[in-house]
Amino acid sequence: MATATIGDITIGYDDEGTGDALVLVHGHPFDRSMWRPQFAQLSRAGWRVIAPDLRGYGESTVVPGKTTLDVFARDIAGLLDRLGVERFVLGGLSMGGQIVLECHRLFAHRLRGLVLADTSAPADSPAAREARRATAKRLVSEGMGPYAGEVLHKMVSRDAPSEVAAHVLAMMHGTDPEGAAAALRGRAERPDYVAMLRAVAVPALVVVGAEDEFTPLADARLMSDAILDATLVVVEGAAHMPNLERPADFDEALGDFLVKL
């Protein structure tokens, strides 16, 4: 556990293991602790695993207003510059996966491979943009509790182990509403990444939970079909967070992918 000052914010992050760098980006409204199972597995397998808290989440600075994906991407690049990491494999789940795509748009030359978990490439529709803004307004006015209770069993399946559901709920409750709202407002304005997918020149692993309602199999298949060197893995018995619900299956897919790199 460590912190670094990058520009005008402080970023909390974990950095474990030695070897080639694997950077993992958490989703909304979570923090870097969602990658705990992957840290244990992959740092022992010879990877240097780095996971930051995005601005507005976890131990990083909360910046109210609007945080667009390019800001998140530049924060990650700044942290990796500070850590002396030039090239790396970059993975993310949900919003984290969209940040991975934004990093590819901004600095593809630094990426050795992509891991796109339970995420989607198209821009939001007008209706979806308005829904994100409405949710942002609601989080600020109500706090995280009501929202967390409503979405828990879309984040993880109803058959998820109780400790997994408790961890996911705790992350959501622990997120600052202003930080989460800023990310939602910025995410509503993200570009469409679909056309860019065919320009991805590094291997990609696309993973999706079979029961994911937020970003279903069709979203994953769109990405895996468009990226030249992509592998699609469907994790049975998992919803939006297969890395926590089915860590053995997720880690096996990720490990097989990393060995090829």
Rank of each mutant, 00 (worst) to 15 (best):
F30C: 01
R74I: 04
Q98K: 14
R110W: 10
M34W: 06
Q38N: 11
I76G: 02
L79W: 10
L54M: 12
Y57H: 15
Y57V: 00
C103P: 03
P37R: 09
D81G: 10
F88N: 08
W47Q: 02
E86G: 03
R55L: 07
G65K: 02
R105A: 07
I76S: 05
H28E: 10
I99C: 02
I99E: 04
S60A: 14
F72M: 13
D70A: 12
D53R: 04
G97A: 13
V100L: 05
G96N: 05
G65E: 04
R44T: 13
S94A: 15
R44S: 15
L24Q: 04
V63T: 15
Q41K: 12
R74T: 08
F107W: 15
V71P: 00
G27T: 07
I99K: 03
W47N: 06
C103N: 12
F30N: 02
G78N: 00
G97I: 02
D70V: 09
R105M: 07
T68H: 10
G58R: 02
H109Y: 13
L24Y: 06
R82K: 15
V25A: 06
E86I: 00
T61Q: 04
R36C: 00
P37G: 06
R82C: 13
D75Q: 09
A73N: 01
Y57R: 00
V62K: 03
D81Y: 10
Q98P: 06
R105L: 01
S43P: 11
M95F: 09
S94M: 03
L42P: 01
Q38A: 09
P37D: 03
G96S: 07
H104I: 03
L42K: 06
S94H: 02
F39M: 13
A51Y: 00
L101Q: 11
M34L: 11
G78W: 01
D70L: 05
D70T: 12
G91A: 10
D81Q: 12
R110F: 12
G27S: 09
G65S: 07
R82T: 12
L106I: 15
I50D: 02
V71Q: 12
A77C: 09
V71T: 15
I50A: 08
G91E: 04
I50F: 08
H28Y: 14
A45F: 07
G27V: 01
V85G: 07
A108C: 00
V25E: 00
L42C: 03
S94I: 05
G56L: 09
G56W: 03
A77D: 14
D81C: 10
E102D: 13
L90T: 07
G58N: 09
D81F: 14
R44E: 14
M95V: 10
G46S: 11
L106W: 02
G58K: 01
V49I: 12
R110I: 07
D70H: 08
R82S: 12
Q38M: 13
A108G: 07
R87Q: 15
T68D: 15
W35E: 04
V89W: 04
Q98C: 15
S33H: 13
S94T: 07
L101W: 08
F39V: 10
P29S: 11
R44N: 12
G46D: 03
I99P: 07
V49H: 01
G58W: 04
D75H: 06
R87F: 11
R36A: 15
D70G: 01
D75A: 07
D70C: 05
